[in-house]
Design a protein around this nucleic acid. Structure first.
Lengths: 230, 230
DNA sequence: CCATGCTCTGTTGCATACATCAACTGTAAT
DNA sequence: ATTACAGTTGATGTATGCAACAGAGCATGG
């Protein structure tokens, strides 16, 4: 009856199954699993060396996050947002980032503001060097820092949910490759930074919203060029 | 792939077996299960006449929705939002409803607009009759119609997520019982309606946001009066 | 009297077994 | 050749068993 055994290293992961959910999510948002692809529970269970049960639980969560679609008695498929959904998500994005900018401007001097300034500097450098991939990463960081700096955890959660759903769209449509979009984007980021630094919440919000609106337009154009069904 | 979802009942219910998940969620948002209460899988399984497995899956989803907290190896507990979270949620609410009003104003003449007008009429009646509970329901309907009328499904999903987290707070703090808040609330709804009818998106948005902002203030006051720990 | 370690119960975490049903395939009839 | 249909296959949906762990309660020693 001794329960002092501590030698069993085989079962593993006695705590939370966060890594599993995260890895599954990454599979989808990274584009490793393409839209329409079947995510078979058995295969995933074997691949991740666990039983079907935790896989099922994770898949249900991904469904709730809008990343996959579970067709009962059939299977789980990677979801591809429709054109309308992408449009809706951008409308939401505009609103949420506008809120973030407003809150950040209201907060005043916080470390995230310095991060933003630094980021814009790096963007200028990347543009000068013509490094598109580096710039793409910086854009991602810029928006992420913006939202983080708002110091509103709930906003952050909703924003992440939203961005995960847009992940595939972002991967496919390289909006930054549109002519002139690169410089324009950088300039708009600079304007956002200035607006926030001026500590005018409304001005910061409107500037940010205009930027997202333009981004959306470019994204829509790029999506048209790709001519997916959806 | 022409087979789309068959629209279960609620926009935020993309799932497969909606009934169980919905009933469990209702258990939490309705206040039947109080914050801090343990939701034991075995007990729930027996109560709903199913096995533990589907219960577990549903509970995990509720955790993702922020309604319960799963402490590994201990149990699932009904979550009580902290004061800061409630504040954050109201900030989000203001932004989302502002967006909804803006979109609705842009859409122009749609059936939801008539619903809103009708709702305001009923509110006036309820206020005249002094029926607080009826008015509370109408308020709920008003905001719900506002968001529905925006014709943005993603917005609707995020909004419902948000409102579910605020459900308990709404139940506990009867903000409408504050002196004069009832009449003020009705008047603000009327102003929102007028702004939307004027088809001026920005005006509609600002009017709505001001209303939510005032609601938040009242809610905060009421929350203080209740002096919960959180 | 208090601190500390042990036991014991209750609950979750995961694995596995079985039931059920969708999709496919091969055959036969038109 | 095309369509209808029934058998087969393989997946999911659910139930249940076992093990691990957290926390309460108790006994014991200081």
């Amino acid at each position: 009856m001794q329960q002092s055994m501590a030698t069993t290293t085989q079962p593993a992961t006695p705590g939370t199954d966060a890594p599993l959910l995260d890895r599954l999510r990454r599979l989808v948002v990274s584009g490793t699993a393409l839209p329409g692809e079947l995510l078979a529970e058995t295969a995933l269970a074997e691949e991740f060396a666990v039983s079907r049960t935790p896989i099922r639980e994770a898949l249900k969560q991904l469904e709730r996050e809008g990343l996959v679609e579970i067709r009962p008695r059939v299977g789980t498929f990677v979801r591809k947002p429709t054109r309308k959904e992408i449009f809706e998500l951008f409308e939401l994005k505009e609103s949420l980032e506008g809120l973030a900018a407003s809150l950040l401007a209201r907060r005043g001097d916080v470390p995230e503001l310095r991060s933003l300034a630094h980021n814009v500097e790096n963007e200028r450098e990347a543009v000068r060097a013509g490094d598109r991939t580096a710039y793409a990463t910086l854009v991602h960081d810029f928006h992420r820092t913006l939202v983080t700096g708002a110091d509103n955890r709930k906003l952050g959660e909703h924003y992440e949910l939203l961005m995960n759903q847009l992940a595939y769209h972002r991967i496919v449509t390289q909006t930054l490759s549109l002519p002139g979009r690169l410089d324009a984007s950088m300039d708009e980021h600079r304007q956002i930074l200035l607006a926030i630094q001026s500590k005018d919440p409304l001005f910061a919000e409107l500037t940010t919203r205009r930027h997202i609106s333009r981004t959306r337009e470019s994204a829509t154009i790029a999506a048209f060029a790709e001519s997916d069904d959806a």
